[in-house]
């Protein structure tokens, strides 16, 4: 058979970018925006993991004598009406806010993927029923639905996560449904069946992973929304309760003092919230390029 290979001998040997790490490095180098997004993500993750250990003050300790101080070298972001250090509270809150958003997105990703895969692969009445259920969720104003869920289930962090997850499920389910649907009769799915895979295995092992690149964009956008959503719930008094540091509550509490000139109470948590959402939104393209094997040329 050797003589037949002549016209197509492989060209160059393995090139850079063949390994996963090399590929990630390439994606980061290729797009400075992605690099910036990953740097900011690293910063936020650092805050979430090490923040509570590193902050200069106890975020819950009150100090009546130093209430409502403007930003200074002692208190970078100033102090609030109870004399608590705003900087420490903003940094410590990172862990809670990221946990809520990541947990909520992971939950909706998992549930949405399962529902969407089933609907997209088998179709028929199953597809119709699932789609109508999702339409029902979408028909509510989503934030109002989340408020309703938290109000009904009770005011806890878990319930914020569940509420945020529920309102995000339709986005994932629809995306996965479409991606699975166009591939269910693809040649590689048929070939997998000939290789002795059951329908379920073909779906889970061969078809679903191909839906990942667009999912990654959705995930990163959703992480931003989820943070906003959690902060929004806390802002209106549902969800995380004072005195726990959380960006939404801090903005809500600080808003009362803007009129009297103490702008730092609301500005810094709001800024952090904005930066976090910004980071996740920028992250999408980079994540997609990393999970897409076709980018590995």
């Amino acid at each position: 058979m050797a003589d037949m290979t002549a016209p197509e001998t492989p060209r160059a040997p393995a090139h850079q970018g063949d390994t996963t790490l090399g590929h990630i490095a390439y994606v980061l180098r290729d797009n400075p925006v992605t690099l910036l997004a990953f740097a900011m993500l690293a910063f936020f993750l650092g805050c979430a993991v090490f923040g509570p250990a590193l902050v200069p003050y106890d975020p819950l300790a009150t100090h009546a004598a130093r209430a409502l101080e403007a930003p200074s070298w002692d208190h970078w972001f100033g102090t609030d009406n109870l004399g608590r250090d705003v900087f420490s509270r903003v940094i410590v809150a990172t862990r809670l806010d990221l946990t809520i958003s990541v947990a909520a997105v992971a939950l909706s990703f998992a549930l949405g993927s399962v529902l969407g895969s089933i609907a997209g692969y088998w179709g028929g009445w199953l597809d119709a029923v699932l789609n109508r259920c999702l339409d029902t969720i979408m028909a509510f104003p989503l934030f109002v639905l989340a408020m309703g869920v938290v109000a009904a289930l009770g005011n806890t962090v878990e319930n914020i996560i569940y509420a945020t997850a529920i309102i995000n499920i339709p986005f994932y389910a629809r995306l996965v449904r479409a991606e699975v649907n166009i591939r269910r009769h693809a040649g590689f799915a048929q070939a997998a069946k000939l290789a002795g895979n059951s329908d379920l295995r073909v779906l889970a092992v061969h078809i679903f992973p191909n839906a990942l690149p667009p999912m990654m964009v959705q995930v990163s956008l959703n992480l931003g929304w989820a943070i906003l959503n959690a902060a929004g719930l806390s802002f209106i008094g549902l969800g995380v309760r004072p005195p726990t540091p959380e960006w939404g509550i801090m903005v809500a509490e600080g808003a009362n003092f803007i009129v009297s000139g103490e702008w730092w109470l609301a500005l810094f948590p709001g800024l952090w919230l904005m930066l976090a959402v910004f980071t996740f939104n920028l992250l999408g393209d980079g994540l997609r390029d990393i999970v897409d094997p076709r980018k590995r040329t």
């Binding site: 040649g187 590689f188 070939a191 290789a195 895979n197 191909n210």
Partner: peptide
Amino acid sequence: DSLNPRGTAAAAIAEPLARI
């Protein structure tokens, strides 16, 4: 179309051997 874009050539050839 008949090869999974996320799998290597070796994985495609190995699939029937591993499964059956």
